[in-house]
Write a protein that binds this DNA or RNA. Structure first.
Lengths: 208, 208
DNA sequence: AGAATGTTTCAGTAGTTACTGAAACACAGG
DNA sequence: CCTGTGTTTCAGTAACTACTGAAACATTCT
């Protein structure tokens, strides 16, 4: 079931077909090299995730699904990354919630498989949309609330003219403009996915 | 010695978290309203920072300097945010390293003051540049390293044709394309600051 | 019904990061 | 030199987040 090339039998898919705790696999040098390269990517991706506020394991699971480009089940993930069932389960669910990983039922199999989206641009769109909603929108709302607290209607005309009040209002305005525009850019991606982004990119690269 | 605020003794300002119902300073209602609005912004900004991998205090200090739009010294910051000297000192230094806060000497004063950049677009540029350097560049390098481990020269022609190897190489290529383009976009901002970004925005808004 | 298999939840804990308070340091002025 | 004032560093600790292992739950098969 594996490849059309040399005698790769069982081992690769052992985890997917049985629950047996794996007696060490015999892997060809090519396979070992492949796994090494994949692990390298997975680890780096995990590190990057951390600094962007995504926990390491979640990022690693995603990297694994993305890089192997094939559906894996919970046990595959647990085994490959050396993590617990609970952790794998929760993280996979979260990835599904983000929409960048999909559940997949194989006909005639009870077990559920997971696969990553293959289109990086689409994944980016999904993530951008979600983070905008979760993090930028509340800030925008707060800014507007602050502005309201400091407008003439709330403070009176004289007070609203104070230097310190004016200064703060200017800063709020600057930040609001920035976030509003950023939001607008995000909007372009959301719903447009790949086509949207490539269009943006094309336009940009031509313009500069 | 602090800012233009009246007699400060007793416990800290009501500023940050409402742990103590503090003996109120003699502040006009307008001033109190101003502080309340500022605190609101500061707290939100701190929360957002956290989810983007910036620690809360650092984000809050920056928010404070930005929103008040005036130079503050270490003690001002400590007092307003209820944080220790060590923490304030370290965080201020880090903000200076990022380039979004500047040290400022007042003539005839020993004490050093700090002020935030006023231009949100410029701040964004600085942060983008730094994060690109710290986080995207290493990933790009890793991707290329992985690709090299899996090319014909390393694996031989037959092995390089294996389905699983091909699949991983395709995924690596997809990710590389994405990051390369993203990098290019970032480049446009860096050094161009406001003008660069506004140009981007104009181009985009016209194109869609 | 019970067994076999797969999935989800959760209390407790390990591991990590952020923060404090105090001490060390730097330096200008007496 | 010492004293006063401001700045930086750092060991120890508090606060927080991620993870495990086990138990509860769900579903299908006999």
């Amino acid at each position: 079931m594996t490849t059309a090339t040399p005698t790769t039998d069982g081992p690769t898919s052992s985890a997917t077909t049985t629950t047996t705790p794996p007696a060490k696999k015999t892997a060809s040098p090519v396979e070992r090299q492949l796994w090494t390269a994949q692990d390298l990517f997975i680890r780096r991706w995990g590190e990057m995730g951390q600094t962007w506020g995504i926990n390491r394991t979640m990022a690693e699971i995603h990297a694994l699904l993305y890089i192997t480009a094939q559906p894996l089940c919970t046990d595959d993930v647990m085994e490959r990354l050396n993590i617990s069932r609970g952790n794998a389960s929760m993280s996979l669910r979260a990835l599904c919630d983000w929409g960048i990983v999909r559940r997949l039922h194989k006909r005639g199999e009870r077990r559920e498989y997971f696969e990553s989206l293959g289109d990086v641009w689409e994944m980016f769109s999904l993530i951008a949309a979600e983070r905008k909603r979760r993090e930028m929108d509340p800030v925008l709302e707060t800014i507007r609330q602050c502005q309201q607290m400091l407008d003439e209607a709330s403070l009176g005309k004289a007070a609203a003219k104070r230097k310190d009040v004016q200064a703060t209002r200017n800063r709020l305005a600057g930040m609001e403009e920035f976030m509003a525009v950023t939001n607008k850019i995000f909007q372009q991606f959301i719903g447009n996915a790949r086509s949207g982004l490539t269009r943006v990119v094309k336009v940009l690269l031509k313009a500069f």
